[in-house]
Design a protein around this nucleic acid. Structure first.
Length: 483
RNA sequence: GGCCCGGUGGUCUAGCGGUUAGGACGUCGCCCUUUCAAGGCGAAGAUCGCGAGUUCAAAUCUCGUCCGGGUCACCA
């Protein structure tokens, strides 16, 4: 039975890289009939952000990833928030100290900083020099009991190659000479990531640790810790990083990195996850579109995760999102659109009208707001006219043709076929191409040069509104009606 | 700088000893549409980072090298 976890820190929002990690974990659990749990790693009190945990859970839920166990779900292995497990870490670290596998270190942060500076000046690699490693245990105990500030460090053996088999990277070997006597317990009584994660992963019976590559070089510490406790370490799978165009780890500086920002910008959950899943993984075929998370989970294997980092390309995200929106039922789409109408300050149209707009816009919308702000002319009169289009399409004869068409629109039957017949009649009468009138009409009614078919546009905007918009255009756009 | 990981068109990728190196995004062109998209067709774009070696044969195996990244905290 496999058990995996996603263990974010509540320092703000869910990062897109975090979502991908969460998805891989979730998919692996689903694919193997295992369990996926959520654990909150809030051991750094200085970086805590109010509401971040709820935000994380909400973002995951939005994405469609629900944990089987977690702070919001409960479970047999709780609590799932590390700050509620302090006694557990204490107990474990005490045991290590008692067995001589870890020891108190009384060096102050300032002292250590000074040590590092000297090492750097001497062109040495900065590292803990073991100054309290061999302190007499009795003396150490006494100082601890006297209340002296200290941390607990792990005794890392010298000159040993720690070799492990990473599921995505293969055999990795790191010598302990490059590993510091790692701090396990901070002076504030909170565990470090290393201690907390190892203890929790064991207690929560995690079988596979699937996490970002930034953790690869500290994996020996985790293996050593497991050994100190007498445990078998889980299997490790280190995921390639998601990077920016400069190939650097994607960060806040690169713009939108939070899941909520993509959600707010109108990407669908399935579109985002589909895109993210393909960043570093493929089923081995050319499949790029997955209808559901479950469909991806079916095809998912850790072995097919690639080793190389991948660049986050919004253009591709848009394309994948487009494919999902294209097949989304109108009812569902209409519901997703609600917040965008609010945001744009537009009243939400009737279902009937909205569904009609949706069908007409389907082939041109990449994100939700493309159905609202991107075609606001369906909902309100244009307040300006696109300059380029005016220049290109608004000719000397436009006012006259438009006026003539307007006259027919007053009384003609309001269906798309008639709208077209009437337009053709006007241009035939004027002995010119239909385009001569089509474009000015579009410009007058929508204010822009592109969009859905003209007759769809007119039909949906409605007779009264069309007439009024044409009047406005004749008034505002250059030229007089000379005929 | 030490250690570790990585390297197929601009981007995401397929490939696992013999392929005209395949697909997708993006770009460009044509068709369709008197719009914009979508769709169809087509094009440009990769000496598979580079150099050796193994082999009849290497993107695929080995070594070296270069470049890129990650990590070296009482942050995760």
């Amino acid at each position: 039975m496999t058990r995996v976890r996603f263990a974010p820190s509540p320092t703000g929002y869910l990062h897109v890289g975090g979502l991908r990690t969460a998805f891989y974990n979730w998919a692996f659990a689903r694919a193997t009939g295992g369990t996926f749990l959520l654990r909150i790693e809030d051991t750094d009190r200085s970086r805590l952000v109010e509401g971040a945990m709820e935000n994380l859970i909400e973002s995951l839920r939005w994405a469609g990833i629900e944990a089987d166990e977690g702070p919001h779900k409960g479970g047999e292995h709780g609590p799932y928030v590390q700050s509620e497990r302090l006694a557990i870490y204490r107990e474990h670290v005490d045991k290590l100290v008692a067995e001589g596998k870890a020891y108190p270190c009384f060096a102050t942060p300032e002292e250590l900083e000074e040590m590092r500076q000297k090492q750097i000046e001497a062109k040495e690699n900065p590292r803990y020099d073991g100054r309290y490693r061999n302190l007499d245990p009795a003396e150490a105990k006494q100082r601890v009991e006297a209340g002296e500030k200290h941390v607990i460090r792990l005794k890392v053996p010298a000159g040993e190659d720690i070799v492990f088999d990473d599921v995505v990277r293969g055999t990795v070997s790191i010598n302990t000479d490059t590993v510091d006597d790692q701090v396990l317990m901070k002076s504030d009584g909170f565990p470090t990531y290393h201690l907390a994660a190892v203890v929790d992963d064991h207690l929560m019976e995690i079988t596979h640790v699937i996490r970002g590559e930034e953790w690869l070089s500290s994996t020996p510490k985790h293996i050593l810790l497991n050994r100190a406790f007498g445990w078998n370490p889980p299997k490790y799978a280190h995921l390639p990083l998601i990077v920016n165009e400069q190939k650097k780890k994607l960060s806040k500086r690169d713009g939108d990195v939070s899941v909520e920002s993509y959600r707010d910008n109108g990407f669908s959950a399935i579109g985002l996850v589909n895109f993210l899943a393909l960043l570093g993984w493929s089923a081995g075929d050319d499949k790029e579109y997955y209808e559901s998370l479950d469909e991806m989970a079916q095809a998912f294997t850790l072995e097919r995760i690639s080793k190389a980092p991948s660049v986050f390309d919004v253009a591709k995200l848009k394309h994948i999102n487009f494919q999902h929106l294209r097949v989304m039922p109108a009812e569902e789409l209409a519901e997703k659109l609600t917040p965008y109408f609010e945001k744009a300050g537009l009243p939400k149209p009737s279902d009937e009208k909205l569904h009609a707009v949706i069908e007409v816009m389907r082939e041109r919308a990449n994100v939700y707001p493309d159905y609202v702000e991107g075609c606001d002319y369906f909902y309100k009169a244009p307040d300006s006219y696109d300059e380029k289009t005016v220049k290109k399409r608004w000719k000397d004869d436009s006012p006259a043709l438009l006026a003539a068409y307007r006259k027919r629109l007053e009384t003609c039957h309001w269906d798309m076929e008639t709208l077209e017949t009437e337009l053709k009649a006007v241009t035939e009468e004027a002995e010119c191409g239909a385009g001569r009138l089509i474009h000015p009409v579009r410009l007058a009614v929508s204010g822009v040069g592109g969009g859905p078919g003209l007759y769809d546009l007119l039909y949906l905007v409605g007779r009264e509104e069309c007439l009024s918009r044409i009047d406005t255009a004749l008034e505002k756009l250059p030229g007089q009606v000379t005929a």
